[in-house]
Design a protein around this nucleic acid. Structure first.
Lengths: 239, 239
DNA sequence: ACACCCTCAGACCAGTTAGTCCAGTAGTAA
DNA sequence: TTACTACTGGACTAACTGGTCTGAGGGTGT
């Protein structure tokens, strides 16, 4: 407290005033000039204190507008597209992916339509079994037109993130995905793969992924163990 | 990309709201004054953001009339969220809702926390059984704090849309919902209600709905027959 | 003596804000 | 039709904000 420097004095006083709740959450602080005068330091010194508080996340700066007390946000991340790999990492788990199949074939009529490519053109199908910390969680089928990602055909996808590989190897960045999920139950084959029982709940996700230009580049079918996965999103209601 | 200037902040928010389809294609945006207030920015700043969006062709300006979302040019699949009622209408089916329970009780600790109200404060619980053309499809539990929607307690909710009732009767408009879905199976009670078998696939949705100000006003739990409902959403990747 | 760092007051800039006034639009009632 | 009213975007102003830079004072250590 009896630190002699003006900067730390300003810092201390601001910290205390924030602790006490003198400035309500989400509100704007008084202007720098006014604050500086009240605390009894110059604006330059005041700013160094404010910047320090910003570094600690206790204040938010907005140029030409003012300093704001962060509003207590307890909200989840907004409707963002998170890949399996990213989600696992965010939870501190170790994601793995075993490739069961990776080969070229001709597209079905339905696939060609959804991917907007010529019927019977060449597509790459990839079947993977995905696990977190060794526990199988998801059986995953992906279909990509060869012409939109030619370098993916022979790529090493074992334990790799497909989204990241697409971006780094093929220069294709996924921007938006149309996603739908439904509930189903496991048949014998799936039950064996996911190490669960026949009839167990399964979450089935269908995905069509697009670039920012609106070009469809990927069809996905994910079958998650019902007790191991939860799909999250933010929805907005139309006015 | 997190420029702190107010203009770019407004731009980012508008972009996202356009992305998630908050404003339907071809519709008029709310007035500049209203938009500015909601985004928390002055009208002048808002207009610079709107002008930028216009330059990208994402908005159309019409003097003295308003700002419009261009009608979808390409075959962009506008796979926005379909509410229960909307989905039913889209298929030419007749949606109904039978109220099984509608009474006040005290909130659990968990509910109080999620709704940000005092523990043990009064909440209204509504249980409904929703059907399409007479076929039960969804069992639905909703919890609303009494203080945030006092007029809902005795309201007639039979076959009504809860969101619309909230808005018209209580002046509460839902802006965003944090939604999560998981797969499960039906127990005896649920199987009987949904007219299906024990062990059948069930899609369980959990919702926390917020106003534009970020105040949580509603907790929802929906249990859909797995063979009768499919959850759809567009997801976006954060830049 | 000197160099160095902290602090200060001041000035200027560009972005932001609240506010006012205007002209065109749309809907309604006479 | 006509007149009226409420609302819309368009334009502009004056005041204010943080961001940046300058030059001067005042300590401290060498």
């Amino acid at each position: 407290m009896s630190l002699t420097t003006a900067a730390s004095q300003a810092y201390e006083q601001l910290t205390q005033e924030l602790d006490v709740g003198l400035f309500g959450a989400g509100t704007r602080l008084p202007g720098e000039r006014e604050l500086a005068e009240r605390i009894g330091v110059s604006r330059v010194t005041l700013r160094s204190a404010l910047t320090a508080l910003e570094g600690e996340g206790r204040l938010i700066r907005s140029a030409q507008r003012g300093w704001f007390v962060p509003a207590t946000v307890l909200g989840e991340p907004p409707s963002t597209l998170q890949s399996f790999t990213e989600m696992a990492r965010a939870r501190g788990l170790h994601p793995t992916a075993r490739v069961l199949r990776q080969e070229l074939r001709t597209a079905t009529l339905d696939e060609a339509e959804r991917l907007r490519v010529a019927p019977a053109s060449s597509v790459l199908q990839i079947d993977r079994l995905r696990a977190m910390d060794g526990t199988p969680v998801c059986f995953d089928v992906v279909v990509v037109p060869e012409q939109r990602a030619p370098d993916l055909v022979g790529a090493a996808l074992e334990n790799a993130s497909l989204y990241e590989t697409l971006r780094e190897l093929c220069g294709v960045t996924i921007y938006r995905s149309a996603y739908s999920v439904a509930a189903s139950t496991a048949d014998a084959t799936l039950a064996k793969m996911l190490n669960t029982t026949i009839g167990a709940a399964v979450l089935v996700g269908e995905e069509t992924a697009y670039t920012a230009e609106g070009i469809p580049v990927l069809l996905g079918l994910n079958k998650y163990r019902g007790d191991a996965y939860r799909f999250q999103a933010d929805l907005f209601r139309r006015a």
